[in-house]
Design a protein around this nucleic acid. Structure first.
Lengths: 227, 227
DNA sequence: TTTTAGGAGACTGTATACAAGACCTGACAT
DNA sequence: ATGTCAGGTCTTGTATACAGTCTCCTAAAA
């Protein structure tokens, strides 16, 4: 394997690599995660792998049954949809708090991500766009200046990205104009507007998701694959 | 140690025990968690302890710095207050969804917890009351029938319990009448009312907290319902 | 044909062993 | 006084070893 030198510990590298593989679909829903195999594949011992599994389980990407082992979680269409309810509540709050705080550095960070995204969209690097989308939403969360909110949002947004990647439900460029208008409301310090736009944005994403699920699956409740 | 036989694996027992010790204050904020010592104290090897630490870190009860070790997280008064913002958003949503769903089994569960709480209050078992309070809020979350919401709420509510226990900011019996009225709104299927009562309940808890820490309220947070 | 017993293999759970980083201390130099 | 360097200790990171449990396959019994 080629675990980068960015991390200090193998368990962090393994955690990130496993999360990446799950988000990218390399590890399919329901797929069994055999510690030995993963360890061998990543060139490490079982220990870092096990610790990673606990973390990813706590974040909801993996399901663990004692003595039976770990599997990649399954996302039913219903669970996918449910996530949007949570996102609306959480991201609406994040946008409101961010607007209230109106921190210049955070605003700069948002602009930065938007700029990167515009480039990535132009060049058509779809993979990167998904990451930047997550980064933008996360940056709104950070801008709220609420540490527990940030802690919650990170796995939540990664899960959202997962839902989309598993559904082939990418959103068009209008998603980015929604981001821009959300940014503007935050920068203007308009709490109500910021919250409303964040909620509307997630609601739009939900509609895209539902359309995609309706299109790409024969049995809406059984769009999951595997095992 | 007296690890019960309720669990199948040591790591689950250790996780629960460590969480309990943190919530109860036996392990103080900022206290260093030395794996060897914990393992010896609990009569297990370091391995289950390490895995527990990862889980509790993901839940925000422990902070880990690679190669330096783990410490019990510190709760500033500000962080404690911030948690209430998140709770209002999340628990408001949970109450709304629970009212929408109106599941009889869930309602029964809520009644059950309320009944147990009434007994515990009568007998004056304060320790148990705190647990039942958390159990009630969690039951509302379960009643919403949203799996990711439940996943989020469990650590969030435990953290809330921690905030209160660390602040000696217990609430009086009126907290339970608020619970009852929340239950009634849910059972009646009144979404708006349920959400409003949940938010009001958390807001009241926030005021108790602020009084206990001797802090003046920054933002009354009067924002209304969502959706 | 269905059911059940039992045993081999695979895998997880737990413990132990070893490697390496971080911190402290004290001597010595500037 | 400040700095820094060496060594020893404490602790975490990682690997390996062993034990216990589950699965699955096979074959005998009903």
């Amino acid at each position: 394997m080629t675990l980068g030198a960015a991390h200090q510990t193998l368990r962090d590298e393994v955690t990130e690599e496993l999360r990446r593989r799950i988000l990218s679909g390399e590890l399919a829903q329901g797929e069994r995660l055999v510690e030995d195999r993963l360890a061998a594949a990543l060139g490490v011992s079982r220990n870092p792998v096990r610790e990673s599994i606990r973390v990813l389980a706590a974040e909801g990407f993996i399901e663990v049954v004692p003595r039976l082992g770990a599997t990649v979680a399954r996302l039913s269409a219903e669970e996918g949809e449910e996530l949007f309810d949570v996102r609306m509540a959480i991201e609406g709050l994040a946008a409101r708090l961010a607007a209230r705080k109106r921190d210049p550095a955070s605003a700069e960070r948002l602009r930065q991500v938007l700029e990167q995204a515009r480039e990535a969209v132009d060049v058509g690097r779809l993979e990167q766009v998904a990451d930047l989308n997550t980064a933008f939403h996360l940056a709104v969360g950070e801008a709220a200046g609420n540490s527990y909110l940030s802690l919650m949002m990170k796995p939540m947004l990664q899960r959202a990205q997962w839902v989309f990647s598993q559904t082939a439900a990418a959103r068009g460029p209008h998603s980015w104009s929604e981001h821009v208008s959300l940014y503007e409301a935050i920068a203007a310090g308009d709490e109500d507007e910021a919250q409303a736009r964040a909620i509307a944005h997630v609601a739009a994403a939900r509609r895209s998701f539902l359309v995609a699920v309706g299109r790409t699956t024969k049995h809406p409740n059984d769009w999951k694959t595997v095992r």
